[in-house]
Each structure stands twice: as C-alpha cells, then as structure tokens.
Design a protein around this nucleic acid. Structure first.
Lengths: 354, 354
DNA sequence: CCTGTAGTATGCTATATAGCACTTTAAACT
DNA sequence: AGTTTAAAGTGCTATATAGCATACTACAGG
C-alpha cells in the first residue's frame, strides 16, 4: 500500500498469498523466473525468499529449487513436555509422580531432549506452552481429555497412566487389572477371606481396573462382594486414614486391606498403628506403586511396583517416533507390574468370631 | 583454509574473533569502513553482519551503527531452568528436591515462565541447555561450582541451598545454623543432655552450618562435645539406619538424636523400631526439612520445616530481576526455618546408669 | 546565545552482473 | 542400446553502484 513498503516485503506477501490460494502448492518457480514474472530484480526476489526460508515458510534444495515447508518441519525446540493436571495433589512433588517425572527426564535426556513440566496450557503471559515443545507426554485423566485434545492438535502427544477416550492417541499404561488380581491372590493364598478394598478415584481406567481386578479376585475364588468391605478413597494419605478407621468400625472388620495406592496404604498403616492394631499380625495391608518410602517404613510395605522406568522409556520412544513423523506399530502399550512382597502381609489371623 | 569457504563466512569468523580478542568491545566499524579494511565488498560484509545479527551475536540500530549483542538481549525463551546435580540420590524425585522443584514450577508459571529441569549442561545431542533458557536456578554444592561458573557465564543464575564461593552469584539459603540451634534448644529443654548428632555431608555450607548449630547448642549450655555422639552420615535413609545402629552400640547411648535431614531421621526411626527402642519414650528423634512423609508416619516426626515456598518465591523473583538486567538490593538471602513439634521428641528418660 | 543549514555517517533497499557448483535433460555419438 | 557430451536450470557467492531516510555535528548567521 504505502510506497514505503520495501519491495522484498511485497514479494514475501505475494508468495504467502500464492501459498494460501494454492497457486503454489509444492515447488516455487525458479528465482530468475519469479523475478521476471513479478518484475523485480533477481536479488530482490532472492532476499524475499531468503526471509521466508528463515521464517520456516519455505526451504531450499540447491540445484533443485525452492519448496513449501510442511508444518511438521517447524523449528525443533529440543524440548518435550510433561503435562500433569494441576488438580493432582502436590502435583509433581507427589511421591508417585515425582518418580514418573524423574524417569521421564532421564529418558528424555538420553534422547536429546529437555523435559519441561507444566500443568497449564498457557503460562502467566498467556503464551502457549506447546510453542516451545516438540512433543508432550501427558498423564491422562477423564477430566483433562479436553486439554489433551488441544495438545494433540498442536503437537505430537503420548498419554500415560490412562488411555484417552480418543484411541488415536498413543498410550502407555500399567496392567492394573492383573496387578491387583495378583495382589488379591497373594492375600488369598495367605488365608485371607475377608479382604477389604480401598479404591482410588473411580473416574479413570486406573481406578476402574484396579476395582475390576479386585472383583475378579473375588470371582476367581467364588467369594461374594461385600459392599461394606469397599471404601471409596481418593488416593490421598488422609483417605487411607479415614478408610482404615471405617474398616475398624465394622462389626466384623477385614483381615486384610488391599489399597489402590501406597499413599492410602500408608494412611491405613498409620491409623492401624494409632489404634493399636498390629500389622501384619492382626491385619495385612497391601499397596500399589512402590513409592520410595514404601520400603523405608516399618513394617516395610508389600506393594505392587509400578514399572516406572519402562513407562518412561516406552513413552519417550513412542513420542520420538511421532515427532519424527514415523508411524507406530503398537499405539497402545500395557506394561505389567510385579508384586513386591515385604512385611505388611502375613497369614490371616485365626478368626475369633463366626 | 580451503578456497571453498565463502568469503562472508570468513568475515563472520573474523568478526567473532575480534569479539573474543576484545578488539571489538562495543561498536563495530561502519559497514563501508569494514569493507575497505578487510578488502571485501560492501555487500559481502553486509551479508556477514546480517547473518551475525540473525544469530543474535550483533544487533543494529539504523543510523547508529552495529553493536555487540549483550547476552541479555538474546531472544527470550520463556524458560527458566532448575539445575540439580545428578549425583543427588534420586534427583528431583527425592522427597526434598521434589518439593523444591514443585514450588519453583508454581512460582515460575506465575511469573510467565516454564520450568525446565536438568542435571547435565548438555543434552544427548551435545546441545547447550542454556541456549533454551532465560535464566537458571541451581542447587549449589561445592562439587558443582565449576558447572555453576559455566552457567553464570551463559545466563543469569541464582543459587539455592548453598551460597557459591563466588559471592557475585545471588543466593537464597536457609539459616541452618539457627534452625539446628533451635532444635538443640528444644531437646535440651526437654531434659536431654546426651544429644547425638547425625551429620549430613560436611562438604557444603548446609552440612557445616547444621554442624555448627549443633556445636553452638553444646556451647550455649556448657556441654562438652563428645565425638562418639557424632555420626557422619550422607543424608540417605541408609545412613540413618546405620547411624542409629552405631549410637545404639555405644556403652552409653544418647537419649536424643538430632538428624541433619528427615531421610536420615526416618532411617533412624526404622532402626530404633527394629531394635525395639520406643520413640519418643526411650529416645527422641529430630529431623530437618519436613518432607511429606514426616507428618504421615507414626510417630509423626518432629522436624524443622524448610521454607520451600519462600525459597522458590525469592529465588524466582531474584532471577527475574537479573533477567531484566536490574540489580538486586540483596544478593544473598537467608531464610529462617521453624521447628515443627510433633511426636518424636519427649522428655529425656531418667538415666539409669551413671 | 540560539538557530538553521549543510555535510557526514549510519544502516537499508534495490538493481545489475558475473561466475560457480551441481543436477537433470536431451542430444549426439559410438 | 548404451555411453558420452553439451546445454539448460537450479540455487549460491560476490561485487559494484545508486539512492534513501535518519541522526548527529559543526559552522555560519542572526
């Protein structure tokens, strides 16, 4: 418009328009050709094209020509993100997620990336965090499905913990069902028949499958589900505290409590200790995750060891494939988790009352 | 060297060298002048300079000239880094540092930054991580002073945990001395006279000052330092385990153990429990940090609460000032830490033997 | 003392030209 | 048919030149 606009800018605009109009779809005309067409000099066209290359709109192959850059060729940042919903209590400093984060970071570095932790899509300045990321690994929960959809639009995304309802998003999860089933087995083999279950939040597959594993354990041995022996917790230490108190309040308390995670198991242990119930003599406790303290407390917690390093390794490898634009053989991976027998589970005490 | 090197690259090299040699310190000669000096044409010099500008080495002011880019004018990335030495056991997933990291992240986001965790200066591809960072907060220990010097050269840096020997680097630390002194006081007031100390690593100010606080406690009450009542640990759970075993092996064991951090206190508790020593009836235990489990175990740990949020807030604010190129009023901040009295310290048991 | 003007320096845009290195294509030659 | 050679097309480097807009400086004039 104003005659002050430099010609090379006009040329840039023209090329951009041509791209939008699909007048140019793949290869640009030669620089000299363009110069004649547009009536500017070769060097002017050159400058314009050079700028667009710098902007990432075009790329050149010497002796071949100049081409449109596809969007996947956006500037590599060398960062991958780890998204963890901010509603997770204490977020990445929680005992479980700090392990996940640490493992992801180690794995990311060996693949040449840095790991950025974020729990909101935008930072304080309203900038989109994904602008700085080549890909994202997200801890998936139903309440963040929207967020994950947004992430997926912007950047290659791999989901862990839970699979997304959008099955096109690759996932790495734990085989929670069989892990809990194994735990149930362990307790049953020790002679426990009144086995209580302390659930986590049942809004996610993690929670549901751990419940299902418990139910399946009952089925396997022909036991009836006693609803009074199910306490609906929320994975927190406090709900472990409360859940144990509830179980103790029953006319016929359980002889073992299977907890959907370690924090609740720790809470239960604390409550039982407070009430003078001896673990494992009077009651057995079994956790899930194998957080750091699980092996440090007395008695050491029998629990399921989440395959943290495998999760990290698998997720980062998958993400790297996606970033490179390759396709995945297995979009959905479920890793098995092993029971770690320590000291909180013992033979069921002889039942006093009938 | 080879005649294939384009001249503009030669010019770029020459300018970069001149910068290193301090031949050029602020302003470059005019483009035309340079052209004559170097014997290349104006446009060639121009191309070289343009490239350097694009690289962020130089910047231009029309009608003024071309100048060296000071590092603070480099492209804002919106990232700040948290550096934690990889020799720290379990790194950012350790109970204490995960709290630090989480607090830093929250603080960073409110300031419009993302937080990148790293424990090596270069990633797997050999790229410098600081290229992607506007500033760094580093956990400082003597063994990483070299690393911190490198960081400081590249990017604004604030140090936490320990001050650096380089006093020009701003620091945010805890007043460990008075915190331990208060802890000692607490035990003394409860009647303890044989108070043992389980040190952390004494290579850093944190370790030294916690020791000094203990010594000062002895001095305050005219007690002699009994070297047998000092166990040199390394902050790990295991050293707590071992330290407690050592103290129990003494002919005259202490009535209280002051631990330089919570992980060791947890180890000590575990060992004492294992040996049938009741806490706090038979022996008192006092920790430092107030990690998450400290309040969850039974008996709940009496400890010093590290002012994590304040540390994060102070450090990020300082760093933001540095990034903006402002000067700091207080380069070195020491935050006080409060004793949190819970259940592991009680009155000293009546001494049986002399 | 202030003011205006001319000169100078700066970086910026723009064009024309010449040759290089490389690849592809097509023609020419065995 | 296969090989060789030539020509054309591509982007890349390099130089020379011309004029523009802006900001500063110095000097002359009021």
């Amino acid at each position: 418009m104003s005659k002050a606009t430099p010609k090379y800018l006009l040329v840039e605009e023209h090329i951009k328009k041509s791209i939008k109009n699909k007048t140019i779809t793949d290869k640009l005309p030669g620089e000299r050709t363009l110069a004649k067409e547009l009536g500017f000099s070769y060097m002017t066209i050159r400058k314009a094209i050079d700028n667009l290359v710098a902007q990432g709109v075009l790329y050149k192959i010497p002796t071949k020509g100049t081409f449109l850059a596809d969007r996947r060729s956006r500037q590599r940042t060398g960062n991958i993100g780890y998204f963890l919903d901010s509603s997770i209590v204490s977020g990445v400093s929680s005992p479980y997620y700090s392990l996940i984060f640490h493992a992801l970071e180690k794995e990311a570095v060996t693949h040449g990336y840095s790991l950025v932790y974020f729990s909101e899509l935008t930072n304080g300045d309203g900038e989109n965090i994904t602008d700085k990321l080549d890909g994202v690994i997200a801890s998936c929960f139903p309440r963040v499905e929207n967020t994950i959809q947004q992430l997926k639009q912007q950047v290659p995304t791999v989901v862990i913990d839970n699979a997304s309802s959008d099955k096109t998003i690759p996932s790495v999860i734990i085989d929670n069902f069989n892990a809990v089933l194994d735990s149930f087995d362990h307790l049953y083999q020790l002679g426990h028949r009144r086995i209580a279950f302390m659930t986590g939040l049942e809004d996610s597959d993690v929670g549901k499958n751990r419940c299902a594993g418990f139910q399946s354990g009952l089925n396997r041995y022909g036991l009836e589900l006693d609803e009074t022996l199910v306490y609906r917790g929320n994975y927190s230490f406090k709900s472990g505290l409360d859940g144990a108190a509830y179980f103790l309040s029953l006319a016929q308390p359980p002889t073992a409590i299977l907890c959907a995670n370690d924090s609740m198991a720790l809470g239960a242990l604390r409550r039982l200790h407070h009430e003078g119930i001896k673990v494992p003599e009077d009651m057995s406790i079994l956790g899930f995750d194998d957080i750091e303290v699980a092996s440090q407390i007395a008695p050491a917690l029998t629990t399921v060891k989440a395959p943290i390093d495998q999760i990290a390794n698998t997720a980062v490898c998958m993400l790297e494939h996606l970033i490179k634009g390759e396709t995945l053989e297995n979009r959905h991976v479920a890793l098995s988790a092993e029971l770690v027998v320590r000291q909180t589970c013992a033979e069921a005490p002889t039942i006093i009352a009938a």
